[in-house]
Design a protein around this nucleic acid. Sequence first.
RNA 1: GGUGAGAUGCCUGAGUGGCCGAAAGGACAUGUUUGCUAAACAUGCGUACGGGAAACUGUACCGAGAGUUCGAAUCUCUCUCUCACCGCCA
Length: 424
Amino acid sequence: MLQLNYIRDNKDEVLKRLAIKNFKDAEAIINSVLEKDVERRNIQKSADDVKAEANQIAKQIGELMKVGKKDEAEKAKSKTGELKLKEKQFDEELKKIEAEIHQALVQVPNTPSLKVPAGKTPEDNEVVFEHGVKPTLHAKAQPHWELTTKYNLIDFELGVKIAGAGFPVYKGKCARLQRALINFFLDRATAKGYLEIQPPIVVNEDSGYGTGQLPDKEGQMYHMGIDNLYLIPTAEVPVTNIYRDVIVKESDFPIKNCAYTPCFRREAGSYGKDVRGLNRLHQFDKVEIVQIVHPDKSYEILEEMREYVAELLKELELPFRTLKLCGGDMSFASALTYDLEVWSAAQTRWLEVSSVSNFEAFQTNRLKCRFKDANGKTQLAHSLNGSALALPRIVAALLENNQTETGIKIPKVLVPYCGFEEIN
RNA sequence: GGUGAGAUGCCUGAGUGGCCGAAAGGACAUGUUUGCUAAACAUGCGUACGGGAAACUGUACCGAGAGUUCGAAUCUCUCUCUCACCGCCA
């Protein structure tokens, strides 16, 4: 959620930036919010004045009672009836208008950075970096969903039997490969200064609101009604919520956390499209990196995180490209997002494996994650996160790109983690 | 699942109707002093939303919501959560 004060002071810039996101009703909503804000302040002033008067009288009555002037006390009491009525009325008005402002404000997406390219669809995303050579596969090369059957690596049908579509069962060397990837990613992250966290993989409602999954996207999460808990769609949710309602020390910046968790997504509405094999799952594994930083540093750190994820892909010897998302393809909460995509040689297409975003103060405003600056003023921190990395599509690309007629080669860096060099 | 206790500021913890935005201690910050990796002393130290050029000042907040009252951290009701013990169990 954007900060009202910020909008008030920077209206033109806010509108300019929202235009990049193709947010249609920006001007209408912002104007109405600002008008209501003026009204709100007027009402609050009136309410405060009435309350101040009532408080005064109450104090006087107390003193009169103490010295035994009962008559005068009674006289003072008679005045309070009217004040109480007014107070109630103002409070209700205030509540109403605050709700309206909030309602309008939550509809407004984060203001994109001015570096975000204009555009509406994924085709408008800007390729900022490309690395590696797309491999040429042998004549009988297969997509990963056939390779996994051939080498007995993943049983999708078994997953259907146990849970449902989108819950694969990994076996043998593939299970080991998954474990290897998780450990590799965590080792690299901790070496880079990220503190490893093992968070709960269920969260309560407050946490869902904190990172913005609720109230809008609740259909995307698995909900356990009996205890009112949600399965996390990403470690971002529990890890970022560590910093909900806290005032961190400025000297603690940058706060760097990483976490491996399974992720659960209902993916409602995406049936039938690009869902073969490992491309889109209800449950998958991911290592996430999260940073809470000083506002002045967040863009510098975003680049650092993007570079870090790119390094991982280089080490895995996967061809990849980095995209700067255009206004139309960015998420609601992001101010600037890089997507990293690996080349899937048998599918001959790019697969998104990481999304690295700077949320500026959009998320921390909702979370109330603040710090005291040098002047002793509390202000919102900036939050960033990125996948580093999501497993299934990495596995898909590894299987497809590294296949030979006799087996699948494991990248060097993973061999110590896997304990084998080839799947055959 | 059963029984009991509780929810106060960054933390511990006092506070049973007006003198309480809240004692005390700790932590933290600044300064002084002695010196040495620390201690002593002094001062400061909640958050949010308003008003004001500023000094300053108004209002709200003691788990959440409602109520009683001129006046509520303190009384009543509802809800949520936490802890302890027992039972069951990884």
